[in-house]
Simulated scan of single mutants.
Amino acid sequence: MSTLARVPPHVLGGRWLAGVTSRPGQIQGHWRCGLPAPVQVSCRFDVVMVVGAALTRAVLDELNGSGQVIGPVLYDHDAETSSWLVPVRPGAAWQMPSTVLMTAPADGREPPLVSLPAPGVGRVGALEWLVQPDGSGTLTRHSDLAVALRRARPALKISSPRSQTCPAPARRPDPDPNRSVRRAR
């Protein structure tokens, strides 16, 4: 049995994430301090941000139910957004409601940064991996994510990007019980 087979997937995922930059030691330094690390998109992956806890759960359920491969997915409990790591597609158009594609700008400016916690450590601040990177380099395909978004949306009857049909994730009770009332207006 090879030594590699005994390394936990989250450790391999951390190595893979740190290796997407020219300074893996800097990424690992953030993680050793218990902080998320700023990682530039468009090196090995782009990010599709999906707005809403209910939509995120519905898309995960749709992809799991259809047997599609799911790459790393990060959830921000404060912003109620999920970040799906997808393959880099230079110049690709992405037009899906309640989502934003983070990729290298066409004008040559620096690509945006995303804050990524170390895999395997649980929640770091508001950030938590729903699907951890496992070191394989597996990413969610754009087409699979788009189909899952199209199928999930009607079931939720989303009328605006921020409307929610179900509460925030159960592990994080809302400290402001009036927040859902304000959002509905």
Rank of each mutant, 00 (worst) to 15 (best):
S66N: 03
R162L: 03
A104V: 13
A106Y: 06
L130G: 10
P133V: 13
P72L: 04
C33M: 12
V7E: 10
A184T: 15
G14N: 11
L139E: 03
W31C: 02
V181E: 12
R44L: 03
A58C: 05
L145M: 07
P112C: 10
P175F: 00
A18F: 01
W16M: 06
T81E: 13
W84N: 02
L145D: 02
G120D: 03
G19T: 15
S143W: 05
D107N: 14
T81W: 08
P87I: 15
P154R: 09
L55E: 10
W94H: 12
G120V: 05
P177F: 08
A152Q: 02
I158P: 15
H10C: 03
V86T: 14
V20N: 12
P90S: 11
L85K: 07
S163A: 07
D144M: 02
P173V: 14
S160L: 00
V39K: 06
G25P: 02
P173D: 15
P97Q: 14
P72S: 10
V73L: 07
G13M: 09
P133A: 08
P169A: 04
D61G: 10
T99L: 04
G125E: 12
V50A: 11
A58S: 01
P111M: 11
S163W: 02
V181Y: 05
V73R: 03
P117V: 12
R123M: 01
L127R: 12
M1L: 05
R141N: 07
A168D: 13
L130N: 07
S160F: 00
V41W: 12
L156K: 14
L74N: 07
V114Q: 10
L101F: 04
T138S: 06
L35H: 05
R151M: 04
W16I: 13
L156S: 04
L74Q: 13
P133T: 13
T81V: 12
S82Y: 08
I70E: 01
P8K: 07
E80R: 15
P133Y: 03
A152V: 02
A155G: 14
P105W: 11
G120I: 14
P36W: 00
T21S: 08
L156A: 04
A54K: 09
D174N: 09
C33E: 10
M102K: 15
S2C: 06
V86W: 07
G67V: 05
P87N: 09
R23W: 00
G120Y: 01
Q164E: 15
L17H: 13
P175M: 04
V50Y: 08
V88H: 15
L74F: 02
C166A: 08
L127P: 14
M102W: 10
A5S: 13
N178R: 14
T21P: 09
S143K: 04
R172I: 13
V131M: 04
D134L: 02
A146H: 09
M96G: 02
I70R: 01
S136C: 04
V88I: 15
R57P: 05
V121C: 07
V100C: 00
G71R: 01
R162F: 03
L101Q: 11
Y75F: 09
A37I: 13
V11N: 15
L60H: 11
P173M: 12
G29L: 00
G135Y: 02
R162K: 04
D174G: 06
S98Q: 10
R32N: 01
R15Y: 01
A18N: 12
I27C: 08
G65K: 06
G34F: 00
